[in-house]
Amino acid sequence: MRFSVFLLALLWAPLIVDAQETRTPSHCIALADNIDGATFVHKASYDVQVAPETVRIHYIAHASFLIRTTGGLNMVTDFTGFVGNVPMIPDVVTMNHAHETHWTAFPDPAIPNVLPGWGEFGEGISHRLDLGEVLVRNVSTDIRSQWSGVEEDGNSVFVFEVAGLCIGHLGHLHHEPNAEQYAAIGRLDVVMAAVDGGMTVDLPTMMRIVSRLKSSIVIPMHWFGEYTLDAFLTGMREEFQVVEVGGPSLDVSLDRLPARPTIMVLRPEWLREETE
């Protein structure tokens, strides 16, 4: 009897290890099933516990977001070196260099994974960072350059595959992706999109991009005032539901994506520690 139990334990052990090291498959290419509901979170704290199979998205400022996983991984997009008055070293930071408000030349050397969205001039860069719970990858796009007109592959769309979700950050996008780039990005469940209407792409182009990506949740970013934000929202209302979250954060899970494509308007706020 003891031998049988021991043998059974040996057979199950690899399965237990695999379950701990394997993330839930994402739906970057296949369409995800949509179910009504989303949890809105209004706290600015960076260290709150995230429910299983859930991702917390916090709009920090401009184009910077904190993406926090159930396992406590902290990832910051378009990292500028400052996220708020918190003693946090992110596990991953992504950056784009169209403007200094999207990157820093001096990231803290304690950050284990610093992913620039550009390489040598015109050559682009390729990232595929697998941390078990999350896969971070990028798709290169071009940006305008003050030196040659266009810097090929100077921007990156970063995609985070986690908890069965595909979360995309379009960065400082300067043109509509081509067919190959759309295919590489895949179907995004959540997308952060710049809606300034000028410094990135114009609003009609961004509206077309957002519609083609068929995301369940769109989070506007990189807006410089209510006028540009409202112009984007007005142009998208026929196709998308618009929800004012009323705070900087929301929790997202695959089984609670909205049935109708929804624009979730977050209000940026620096990260802070919760105080009693």
Rank of each mutant, 00 (worst) to 15 (best):
G37D: 07
V76R: 03
D142E: 13
L129V: 01
K43M: 14
G84Q: 11
V55S: 07
V76D: 12
T94L: 06
R144M: 03
N138K: 07
E53T: 07
G72R: 00
V50G: 04
D130S: 06
F79I: 11
Y46S: 06
G119H: 02
L115M: 11
T101M: 10
F121D: 10
L135H: 08
D108W: 07
H62Q: 01
N85L: 09
T104L: 12
T104A: 09
L73T: 08
N34S: 11
N138S: 13
F40V: 14
L66F: 04
P112N: 10
T77D: 15
E53P: 05
L31R: 11
F106P: 00
E151V: 04
T104F: 05
T101N: 15
Y46R: 01
Y46C: 03
P52R: 02
T104C: 05
E151G: 01
A61S: 13
I57D: 00
L115D: 04
F79D: 09
L135Y: 06
G71A: 09
N34V: 07
I57H: 04
T69W: 02
R144L: 14
P107I: 12
G122A: 14
E53L: 05
D36M: 07
A63H: 04
V92W: 04
N138W: 06
E133Q: 13
E152R: 12
Q49V: 14
N138L: 08
L115V: 04
D142Q: 12
R56P: 07
M88W: 10
M95A: 14
V93S: 10
M75L: 12
G117F: 01
S140M: 15
A51I: 11
P116E: 00
A51R: 15
K43T: 14
E100W: 11
T141I: 12
M88C: 02
A51N: 08
I57L: 15
P87W: 02
P107D: 11
I111W: 08
I60D: 03
I89Y: 03
V93H: 09
G149Y: 06
R68G: 08
G81N: 13
A51E: 15
L129E: 13
D130R: 12
G132F: 02
E133G: 13
R128T: 09
I89K: 01
V55C: 09
V50R: 05
L131R: 00
A61C: 06
A61L: 02
S140K: 09
R144V: 02
N113M: 04
L31G: 13
T39F: 12
N138M: 10
T54S: 12
V50H: 02
P116S: 00
T80S: 10
V139I: 12
I60N: 00
A51D: 13
E152G: 09
